[in-house]
Amino acid sequence: MHIVILTLSFSLPGCGSLKEKRGRMGGLHARFGNNPSVAVCESGERDRHDASEWTFVVVGLSKREVESQCSQIEDKIERTVDGRVMNVVREFI
């Protein structure tokens, strides 16, 4: 079994409230949390309006499988989140 912790940091320029922040992040938990091999949470910058950090724990039978899942998560986020990805960290356990 292979496990990856994927952490993404976002900049949300011009975001003025936590309500707007939730709207701009576009329901990441609902979108990715339904996959049984992925756990997701907002892991940092919870009280800031102009930044956010999200962590995904991805589990799979092969390294290739978890790397592919991480790439899919990153690609989908780039297309759907109204913000800039500032940093991506993959930590293999």
Rank of each mutant, 00 (worst) to 15 (best):
P13W: 11
T7W: 01
G44A: 05
C70H: 06
Q69G: 00
F10Y: 15
G60E: 08
S43F: 03
E67T: 13
P36Y: 09
L61P: 02
S37W: 02
L12A: 08
I3H: 07
F10V: 07
V38N: 00
G27P: 06
V58K: 01
R24D: 09
G33C: 06
V57C: 04
L12S: 06
E20L: 03
M25S: 03
P13V: 10
A51S: 14
D47E: 12
I3W: 02
R48M: 11
R90Q: 12
S9D: 15
E67N: 14
H2E: 14
D50M: 04
L12G: 03
T80N: 07
R64M: 11
S9H: 15
N34E: 12
R90K: 15
V58D: 00
G83L: 08
S68L: 12
L28G: 01
S62E: 14
G44D: 14
E78N: 10
D50N: 10
K21E: 03
V40D: 00
S17W: 09
G16I: 08
I77S: 01
I93F: 09
K19V: 04
E91M: 08
S71D: 15
S62F: 07
C41A: 15
C41I: 05
G83M: 10
R24T: 07
S37E: 09
G44C: 07
P36H: 13
V58Q: 01
G23M: 06
G14Y: 06
R79K: 14
I5P: 00
G26H: 09
R84W: 15
I77V: 15
R22W: 04
K19N: 12
V58E: 00
K63R: 15
E67S: 14
